[in-house]
Design a binder for these strands. Structure first.
Length: 687
RNA sequence: CGCGGGGUGGAGCAGCCCGGUAGCUCGCGAGGCUCAUAACCUCGAGGUCGUAGGUUCAAAUCCUGCCCCCGCCA
């Protein structure tokens, strides 16, 4: 087998937050792939970095009253710690705020300029006069400009009530979410990359079938490549935390311009440490492969913009972009209030990383499906498959050979070892195409065979007969070899177990070929537990620990300036209804007192909070309320509200809403839930 | 008819490209073992593979229509 040179990247985590178990789907998936390639004897370099630039970092640093550099340095340390805790082993972990990255940004920019890809266009944006900064779409809220909609409290880019798309400047009554100030319109020149110039290339590159999963290629074809590609706005005017554009003073590269270049910069740092030239990896004709692993949310950056940038600057194009889905927990998006938004560091306080690595591996396939973490299944797989299946083979044989050694010649085992050895190629192919679930499936099958073999031979019975010592040794030599073979196959997933197996049998696992031939004659150490069983309690503690604490619930954004009370504005905004309604009309509406028993933010929804309401007794209602802008879930749990109990259930994007919570106010921070005076109990009707 | 993905025993999935007795994990039932971290082994119940047609000696697998679910946020 010829040695491949493989460069692998995982997406750069943003320096604005900690690593959580959702991120880990990607880093574990990638780390497994890298470890597999290394075990196979290829040269494989695993690179990553913190993504540090952009408005969000700048704002956060301001709020924390410290420099951006201090903020990102702390976060980088934390990220590195978290990754190490999960045995994610980068060859270099850089930062996009590095000199290496600045230099490469300059270089690619120069190429883009020379190629005539850059143009300048005025962009009119809202500007926050208090904060002194332009406002990205997500930092502006206001009323939808669509005259037929006029939904309040919408973000600057589109309305999720009517789907209307607009620019932030179109919003009616816009408000900066940073300061609460009314933003002003200001115009500034931005720099754009003309991607359309590379349309033909992108069409060919994305559709050629090797670089992308087929779903992704189809998606791009349908969504983007069918029409001219818009110019990509890659600059932001000061103030902005990032690199200033050399030939355009006062303008900075947009974070998504310098982030992927961070892959190169990280390569460069790694190369420089070894006295190598980074161009042997990134030059157009470099003899290597480049693999990017990313989540589906950043598909277009890596499959359109990035290849375009590389093409335009004569660099090596990605061999493959591996795209994975999101993590759900218990079938739902991760939720802070439910405690399923588990940070890496929190997980490590309670659980061994091997469980999660194994669990994710057992669920990961080559496609973009979301991966669901079911806590029961998690405990089950760790205990039944990992401990009860794999480790148990060693556990039930090693003690008969402790202090002795494996047989000098491998005994007849009915073809078990050969059978498993023959599986190596198909297992390798599964790893290669990121089909880890098939790897785990196959290994599970091998475990079952090994365990059945031991059951049949029952060395523990023979061990009671002194004259059968040699037979016991033979059986256990077979068992331990089958164990080792499986562990070799699982080494990319479970590096620590591989280490332990190496120590147990006095022969470290270093190569994929270690699974091809049995180990003979080496001393067997006294058996020690390799992996503890998981207690459900540990998982529960982790979930509890992940729920927000009182002090931890900082409301994002600042309070709006208070409105003068009892003014005419409210009536002006929503005039009285002229039509009269009868008492019958009113009684059709079944208003009830309800208690909020649980509340959680709906991931992906800008306005929604998911509520579980109790109407007394066992009766529960699931209600989605558009009140996220005014209430945190924590503020809601326990309180009484008034709900329209006989409202026809409505299917929403995130689930079925079985009622409606009554509130006053026009939206945004101006939402005021109705609640009864004390003494009312859930279930009572409002008359 | 927006685009893409999908509908297989109670749950989660594989098989589909390259048609030929429907498989895995969990759960459930019965038995065995008692070496092992209450781990392990054997047997069993449970599916007309969304639906209606078509092609074929043969369809979960190929073709067509329909129904349903999920994703889509430059």
């Amino acid at each position: 087998m010829t040695q491949r040179r493989i460069l692998v990247t995982a997406a750069l985590p943003y320096a604005n937050g900690h690593i959580h178990i959702g991120h880990l789907v990607e880093y574990i998936q990638t780390d497994i792939w890298v470890r597999f390639q290394k075990l196979r004897g290829h040269q494989c370099v695993f690179l990553c970095a913190d993504d540090t630039h952009g408005t969000a970092i700048m704002i956060r640093a301001r709020q924390e009253k410290r420099s951006e550099e201090a903020l990102i340095a702390d976060m980088r340390d934390a990220h590195i710690r978290d990754f190490a805790g999960f045995d994610i082993d980068f060859d270099n972990y850089g930062s996009t705020n590095s000199e290496a990255n600045r230099g490469l940004c300059h270089r690619l920019w120069g190429e883009l300029r020379r190629g005539g890809y850059i143009n300048e266009q005025p962009v009119t944006q809202l500007f926050d006069p208090v904060e002194g900064t332009f406002l990205a779409d997500r930092f502006v809220k206001g009323t939808c400009p669509n005259p037929e909609c006029q939904a309040p409290n919408q973000y600057g880019d589109s309305c999720d009530k009517c789907g209307h798309t607009h620019s932030p400047a179109d919003l009616v009554n816009p408000v900066s979410t940073l300061s609460g100030a009314t933003p002003e319109l200001r115009s500034a020149n931005h720099l754009f990359i003309n991607i359309e110039k590379l349309h033909g290339f992108l069409e060919e590159w994305t559709q050629s079938g090797e670089h992308l999963q087929s779903e992704v290629a189809n998606y791009l074809k349908g969504h983007f490549l069918g029409e001219p590609l818009r110019d990509w706005d890659v600059s932001r005017p000061a103030p902005y935390f990032g690199f200033e554009i050399p030939d355009s003073p006062g303008n900075y590269w947009y974070v998504w311009f310098d982030a992927p270049i961070g892959y190169m910069a990280s390569t460069k740092e790694w190369c420089e440490r070894r006295g190598e030239n980074w161009a042997t990896w990134w030059h157009r004709d470099a003899n290597c492969e480049i693999h990017h692993f990313i989540g589906k949310d950043i598909t277009y950056f890596h499959t359109l913009f990035w290849p375009a940038m590389l093409k335009a600057s004569d660099c090596k194009l990605p061999t493959k972009v591996h795209i994975h889905g999101f993590l759900t927990v218990g079938g739902e998006k991760m939720s802070k209030s439910k405690g399923t938004f588990v940070q890496a560091a929190t997980y490590l306080k309670y659980l061994d990383p091997a469980y999660l690595r194994y669990y994710y591996a057992s669920k990961l396939g080559p496609r973009l499906d979301d991966l669901d973490l079911s806590l029961d299944e998690f405990v089950d797989k760790a205990n039944k498959q990992l401990v009860g299946g794999v480790v148990n083979i060693a556990s039930r044989t090693a003690k008969f050979l402790g202090g002795k050694s494996l047989c000098e010649t491998y005994p007849a085992d009915g073809g078990l070892f050969l059978f498993a050895a023959a599986a190596h190629e198909s297992i390798a192919e599964s790893y290669e195409r990121c089909d880890y679930q098939t790897v785990i499936r196959t290994c599970k099958e091998l475990c079952d065979r090994a365990n059945a073999f031991l059951d049949e031979k029952a060395p523990w019975t023979l061990a009671k007969q002194p004259d059968k010592a040699e037979e016991v040794r033979q059986i256990c030599s077979i068992g331990l070899n089958l164990f080792r073979q499986i562990v070799v196959y699982l080494t990319p997933v479970l590096p620590r177990l591989a280490q332990q197996a190496g120590e147990l049998l006095s022969a470290p696992i270093t190569r994929w070929e270690d699974a091809h031939s049995p180990l003979t004659g080496t001393p067997v150490a006294n058996f020690q537990h390799m992996l503890k069983r998981v207690e459900l309690k540990q998982v529960q503690s982790m979930i509890e620990d992940s729920k927000p604490t009182e002090e931890g619930t900082v409301v994002e954004g600042l309070a709006l300036p208070s409105q003068p009370t009892d003014g005419p504005e409210a009536l002006a905004k929503e005039p009285l209804v002229a039509d009269l309604c009868s008492i019958d009309d009113f009684t059709k509406i079944d208003l009830r007192v309800a208690r909020v028993v649980s509340a959680s933010a709906v991931e992906g929804a800008d306005k929604l909070v998911q509520l579980t309401l109790s109407l007394g007794g066992e009766l529960r209602r699931n209600v989605f309320a558009g009140i996220k802008s005014a209430y945190t879930p924590e503020q809601l749990v326990g309180r009484l509200v008034i709900v329209v109990a006989n409202l026809a259930p409505r299917k929403m994007r995130f689930g079925v809403s079985e009622g409606m919570v009554c509130a006053a106010g026009g939206g945004g921070q101006e939402i005021f839930l109705l609640s009864p005076d004390s003494g009312a109990v859930p279930g009572q009707r409002v008359h």
